[in-house]
């Protein structure tokens, strides 16, 4: 368990966002979270909880119908939200990289793996074509791909989903970024491959000392890989803490409900409980009170 030591790698403070399309409905409600150096931080919540909005805000790809209403995303002493386009482009790919959700669509179908792995290394790490190729080769070995030469010469459609995700993980960590955003990296894979991919991310992260923000809807996956976890509901942080502590003794009723909704392979007779309606009612009341409170705070 590595608790954040000195200055965290990524420090999100009071991040708020609204949906312009949906009557200015809040989608992030003053979210604060830190990702420490070398830490894997889980960001959990059901769909629509605002997990991916946070990831997109960090990466500067907020869709046009969403507006950041307040807060900061601190990275290396700078606020990513205030960076110019070119300043952000300089940070992306060099200091921050993404492992995407769906490996079937995240690789360009008409470019060889070779080209797609080396272009970032050449632009962001200043490697020559030959150096980048050697680096890509050793990166593929690092993600346990047996015949890197064949994979490098392949087009994406010639590789399996698990292979593609390995390639994407190798490409992301290969840029030697300080922070990797892993956006549900195992959701599109089948269960047996999921485990290997999780182990791989953890191994690479430890070897390179990378900080990882691990976005997932699955507490079971988060339990396997994350040092700390933040649980979101309707854009609000409902629970935050060391993963083991949160899982062992969830303080919030919603986290308990999420845990209960997780299938347990060791106890197939339990689990898969839907969130009890009284928990939802209580949460919504809590959020309504928060909205009213922050409204007053803003006015005052």
């Amino acid at each position: 368990m590595t608790a954040p030591k000195t200055m965290p790698r990524l420090a999100i403070e009071d991040l708020s966002a609204i949906s312009l399309r949906d009557g200015n409905r809040p989608i992030l409600r003053r979210v604060s979270l830190d990702v420490g150096l070398g830490e894997v931080h889980g960001l959990v919540g059901e769909s629509g909880a605002g997990k991916s909005t946070i990831a997109k805000a960090i990466l500067g790809i907020i869709p046009s119908q969403v507006r950041i209403a307040g807060g900061k995303i601190g990275f290396e002493g700078r606020d990513l939200l205030t960076l110019s386009g070119s300043a952000l482009r300089a940070v992306l790919g060099r200091d921050i990289a993404l492992v995407p959700q769906d490996p079937t669509t995240a690789l360009n179908p008409s470019r060889r793996i070779d080209a797609q792995m080396t272009d970032g290394l050449r632009l962001k790490r200043g490697l020559s074509a030959k150096e980048a190729r050697l680096r890509a080769h050793s990166l593929l070995e690092e993600v346990q791909i047996r015949d890197p030469d064949r994979v490098l010469a392949s087009y994406p459609h010639q590789l399996s989903g698990g292979m593609r995700q390995r390639v994407l993980i190798a490409a992301a960590f290969g840029l030697e970024p300080k922070l990797v955003i892993a956006d549900e990296p195992t959701t599109a894979l089948d269960v047996t491959v999921q485990k290997q991919i999780l182990r791989l991310i953890r191994a690479l992260q430890e070897r390179h000392g990378t900080s990882v923000l691990f976005v997932s809807h699955d507490l079971g996956v988060v339990a396997k890989i994350c040092d700390r976890v933040t649980v979101l509901y309707m854009g609000k942080v409902v629970e935050q803490g060391a993963t083991a502590a949160v899982l062992a003794a969830p303080r919030h009723a919603y986290t308990k409900a999420l845990l209960a909704a997780n299938p347990r392979y060791d106890r197939p007779d339990t689990g898969l409980e839907p969130t009890p309606p009284e928990v939802i009612t209580a949460l919504r009341a809590e959020i309504a009170a928060f909205d009213a409170g922050s409204g007053e705070a803003r006015d005052g």
């Binding site: 921050i96 993404l98 360009n108 840029l175």
Partner: peptide, 14 residues
């Protein structure tokens, strides 16, 4: 709008 273009954008390409 494809994912691979998004990923390339996140590599910091213009």
């Amino acid at each position: 709008l494809q994912d691979y273009v998004l990923l390339a954008r996140i590599k910091g390409f213009g």
